[in-house]
């Protein structure tokens, strides 16, 4: 009879094999090739539909960085037919800005709590509900206990929880399955004349945390948020390379 440690090792190897098999191998893409939003991110996020019952964190360094658009675009592909609950504690989300991201506002329950302490309650209640596909919320501080509660609630309801958080939370422990960091890149290399160019912007998306794969990966995408199109600019091996390449 095999030793206990051998069984554990064998199981671990099997899990790794399964995870590798599900990983999307990005093809060699030339610069500025337009691809669907989902495909642009699948190199980072292998199987979006399998994220039911999980939490995903999107970190951004400041307002206007593009994390909300990217998070919506990434989730929208797999959860287009589901009901979305968006908790908007700051009361700033603007419907006309979300429509180009292919978000059907008829399927969105917008929750605007008056008190900050109601935000987490609303998130947990929504995550715990079967029938809700995605719960999006902007949260700042989260205690480990509260974070764990959210993760358990997502597991119970089979709901994808999308948490939008500031970059300074990067060092905090997380119960999210995936953690992304979004950094906008100034388009210095593009002609600076006003009006002539479409208002596109480039975003560096780093994968900081993923199950079974802790190697940092990054892609640079170009987002046209007037119509929700993503262009894969380049495929980079690691976050450090990406940062060096763009001079950010």
């Amino acid at each position: 009879m095999a030793a206990r440690s051998e069984i554990v090792a064998e199981l671990a190897a099997r899990i790794r094999r399964i995870e590798r098999a599900g990983t999307y191998q990005a093809p060699n893409i030339e610069d500025d090739v337009e691809v669907p939003a989902a495909s642009a991110l699948t190199s980072l996020w292998p199987n979006m539909a399998s994220l039911r019952g999980r939490l995903v964190e999107w970190l951004a360094n400041a307002k206007g960085a593009g994390a909300t658009s990217l998070a919506v675009l990434a989730s929208q592909a797999a959860f287009a037919q589901d009901l979305w609950v968006v908790i908007d504690g700051r009361k700033t989300l603007h419907g006309p800005g979300l429509v180009p991201l292919s978000l059907d506002l008829n399927r969105v329950v917008l929750v605007r709590p008056e008190r900050p302490q109601d935000v987490l309650w609303a998130v947990e209640q929504s995550l715990r509900t079967r029938g809700v596909g995605v719960v999006v919320c902007e949260v700042d501080q989260l205690t480990p206990a509260a974070f764990r509660r959210l993760q358990l609630a997502a597991e119970t309801g089979g709901t994808l929880g999308v948490l939008l958080r500031p970059e300074r939370m990067r060092q905090q422990p997380t119960w999210a399955e995936f953690r992304f960091l979004v950094r906008p890149l100034a388009m210095r290399d593009i002609e600076k004349s006003s009006g002539a160019i479409k208002p596109r912007r480039r975003l560096l998306v780093e994968l900081l945390r993923a199950p079974g794969n802790f190697t940092a990966k990054a892609v640079i995408v170009e987002l046209d948020d007037a119509n929700g199109r993503l262009c894969m600019v380049t495929q980079l091996a690691s976050a450090a390379t990406a940062v060096r390449a763009t001079g950010a």
Partner: peptide
Amino acid sequence: IGLLFPTTLARPTHLLT
């Protein structure tokens, strides 16, 4: 929506009020 908000005049995702 396309007529109301042409692609060159995209609206922000967050509006400050």
